[in-house]
Design a binder for these strands. Structure first.
Lengths: 195, 195
DNA sequence: CAACTGACAAAAAATAAAATTTGTCAGTTG
DNA sequence: CAACTGACAAATTTTATTTTTTGTCAGTTG
């Protein structure tokens, strides 16, 4: 990737970072490599990002926003869905998205797994957004009006095995779909009872 | 630890392995170190265990049996408990045991985490025993008579965040107890509905 | 003068060399 | 002769050495 304009932007740098990670993998990508792919000196990158960590966190935040949060926000907004079915559609989408990227975009999924594992702040912000969506869905669906945020968290954590990257290798099991359905059946009953 | 009798047994070797891991940590423990602590040549250990992997797996199996399965079997057998409350007592015990050893016996907990992470067979056998217990409790409590084993699995996997070693660092959070209670409330409703 | 370069020291990573560990087995010992 | 030893090759790990990378900044450039 060559310099396309004469002002270097954060967006360009992040795009080059993703490309470089896809080419060399997470472990082998250096700031120097990213600079090389942009045709600039690595010092330039440090005018835009304080550190390598900050650069990788910015790339991960963008990736999460675009690949995970945006499609989830669509499901959240979907007015054809209501109540428990809406929650189910949301969680199923979350689970499918994670599985999709774990398989189809290993390099950037590895970036997301590593960066979130090392940044409590980033992961907690991300989880906060998802629990926010779920809370919203529950309120609009008239579910669990007493403590909707805690119920939202409970649904999220009860399905952790199906969306937390630490469990990604388990997603290859042929039993995983049945196991999710069984867990979902349990949760669904729990959600239905208290509405 | 010196040789206590003149016939070397698997049990002695496993005990020495645990001691050595506690002393040097998982990463720094070699078969040679274990042999040294027994006052034998490392070749002797290979008459009892085909490989270092097999030795560590045997030590882990014993640890799981003694520290996790045995106390869980007690809860399973406890005739003062029935139905959903029995399931809850079982899962709470499982969660507490894992947390206890993660904190109080880091070295052997690390052994368990590493060995199970690397042996699909060992972990699947262990999970099988727990799901067996839960199935038993459910049948005796008259819960979910249609597919008790699948419900048992659902309860186990829905609480994975609270007992799977990949989540051990999250157990330090002060919110963890509240989060477990919220997940449990959801599960409990699910279990109660279908009995 | 804002945006970038390139030279630099400190930190980290890769490579090379040395030492240890793993696993085997012929031979010793009680 | 069953149980163990100790010497050995191959594999792995550790340590030492070299190279690269990170992060800074004074200086250049358009």
């Amino acid at each position: 990737m060559e310099k396309s304009s004469d002002v270097l932007t954060k967006e360009q740098i992040i795009a080059a970072t993703e490309e470089t990670i896809k080419r060399y993998g997470m472990a082998k990508t250096s700031v120097t490599d990213v600079a090389k792919s942009l045709g600039v000196s690595h010092g330039s990158i440090y005018r835009h990002f304080k550190s390598k960590t900050e650069l990788f966190e910015a790339a991960t935040e963008q990736w999460l926003e675009e690949k995970i949060i945006a499609p989830l926000a669509d499901v959240c907004r979907d007015s054809s869905l209501r109540g428990v079915g809406h929650v189910q559609a949301y969680i199923r989408t979350l689970v499918q998205l994670k599985r999709h990227y774990a398989r189809e975009d290993e390099a950037l999924f590895a970036m997301y797994a590593k960066v979130t594992d090392e940044s409590a702040e980033l992961i907690s912000k991300h989880i906060g957004r998802i629990i926010g969506h779920l809370t919203d869905i529950m309120l609009r669906g008239g579910l669990k009006s007493d403590q909707p945020e805690r119920s939202a968290g409970a649904v999220f954590y009860a399905t952790a095995r199906f969306h937390h990257p630490a469990h990604a290798y388990e997603w290859k099991s042929p039993a995983i779909d049945a196991e999710f359905s069984d867990v979902w059946a349990l949760i669904e009953q729990g959600l239905k009872t208290n509405d």
